[in-house]
Simulated assay, not measured.
Amino acid sequence: MVMRLSTVILPVRRWSEGGREQWVRAEELGFHTAYTYDHLSWRVPFRDGPWFGAVPTLTAAAAATERVRLGTLVTSPNFRHPVTLTKDLLSLDDISDGRVTLGIGAGGTGFDATALGQEPWTPRERADRFGEFVPLIDRLLTEDSVSHRGIHYSADEARNIPGCVQRPRLPFAVAATGPRGMRIAARYGQSWVTTGDPKLFDSGTPEQSADAVRGQISRLGAACDEIGRDPGTVEKVLLTGFTPEGGRPMESLDAFVDFAGAYFALGIDEIVVHAPIPGTIFAADEKVFERIATEALGQLAERPA
C-alpha cells in the first residue's frame, strides 16, 4: 500500500500576507495534495474573521506551484450549482495542468446552509440533492454538451469544451458515511473521505474511533461489491482533527507516527493534516508540523508490516 500525507490550508490569510507562502511551502514540504475548505464561512472562531473563496484561492495556488495536487475538502450543494461549479473546475484543472481533485460531500447545517436565504435542508433533502448533484457534475465534466431536467438541478445544453486535462475527468474524493453516500462514493469516487464517527469526538476513545472507521471501510466495500467494483480501486482518505484524539497527534512526530500507523493499518491510504492556525482547534507547533511532513512517512515505511 502506498501511504500518502496531505494537508488542508484554511483560506484565512490574505494572499499578500502569508497566504501564497503557505501553498508554496506545502509543495516544498512534499505533501501529496494541498486542500482547502469550500465554505462561505465556517464555525467559530472563523465565522467572524477573514475567510476567502476556495476556487480563487486554488487558482492562485495553481499559479504559484508546480507539482503539488490541489483540491477542495469538501465542496457541497449548500451554495453550489453543478453547471457553474463545473465551469470553475474545468478552468482550474486547465490552469493547474491537471492537478485538481474535487472533494465533494452532501453538506451540513452550518452557516453555508442558510447563507443564500434558504431554510436548512433536512438530512433526507441533503442526501436527495447530493444524489443528483454528483452524477450531474460527472456528466458535465465528461460530455461536451449536457441537458438535464432534475428535481433539484437543471442544465440546458451546458457546454464544457475542451474538457478536463485529466481524462476522462478530474478525480472525485467523495465524503460519505451513510448508505446513500457510500453508494455514490462507490460509483463515482476515485477516493472516499472520512473524518471518523462524529458521535465519538467528545466522549469516544481512539479504539472506538478505529473500530468505527473499520466499519465504514467495510460498508464502502459492500457498496462497491453491489456494482461489481473492486473496493481496492477506491482510495481511502482520513481528514484528521475530528476523531477523539483531536490535535494530540500533532504534538510530536512520534505521536503522529503512532496515530497514522494505526489508521494506515486499517486500510486508509491518505491522511490529511491541517496547517497550523494559532488560537484554534488546529493550533500546532510549526516545526513539529514540518517534521511530520518530511519525516513521518519514512518512519512509517520502516515499521514492520
Rank of each mutant, 00 (worst) to 15 (best):
V12P: 02
V12K: 00
R13V: 06
R14V: 09
R14N: 11
W15V: 01
S16T: 14
S16R: 12
E17K: 12
E17I: 11
G19E: 08
G19R: 09
G19P: 10
G19F: 11
G19I: 13
R20F: 06
R20V: 12
E21A: 15
E21H: 02
E21Q: 12
E21F: 06
Q22F: 03
Q22Y: 01
Q22M: 14
W23T: 10
V24N: 03
V24Q: 14
R25S: 13
R25H: 12
A26L: 01
E27K: 07
E28S: 08
E28F: 02
E28N: 03
E28P: 02
L29Y: 00
G30W: 07
G30V: 11
G30A: 08
F31H: 05
H32D: 12
H32C: 07
A34F: 06
A34I: 05
Y35C: 01
Y35R: 04
Y35W: 15
T36R: 01
T36Q: 03
T36A: 03
T36I: 05
T36C: 09
T36P: 00
T36M: 03
Y37L: 15
Y37Q: 07
Y37C: 10
D38N: 03
D38P: 00
D38V: 12
D38R: 05
H39A: 12
H39F: 10
H39G: 07
H39W: 10
L40Q: 07
S41H: 10
W42F: 15
W42L: 11
R43T: 14
R43A: 15
R43N: 14
V44P: 01
V44A: 14
V44E: 14
P45S: 09
P45M: 10
R47V: 12
R47C: 13
R47Q: 14
D48R: 13
D48L: 13
D48A: 14
G49R: 13
G49K: 11
G49V: 08
G49C: 09
P50K: 11
P50T: 13
F52G: 05
F52H: 11
F52K: 07
G53A: 15
G53W: 08
G53Q: 13
G53M: 13
V55N: 02
V55T: 13
V55I: 15
P56E: 06
P56D: 07
T57F: 01
L58T: 00
T59I: 01
T59H: 05
T59G: 09
A61K: 02
A61V: 01
A61G: 03
A61L: 05
A62G: 07
A63L: 15
T65I: 12
T65H: 00
E66D: 08
E66P: 00
V68G: 04
V68P: 04
R69G: 10
L70Y: 04
G71R: 06
G71E: 01
G71L: 11
G71V: 11
T72G: 05
T72V: 11
T72K: 02
L73S: 00
L73G: 03
L73N: 03
L73Y: 04
L73F: 04
V74H: 04
V74W: 05
T75H: 00
T75I: 12
T75Q: 08
S76F: 10
P77W: 10
P77E: 06
P77V: 11
P77T: 09
N78D: 15
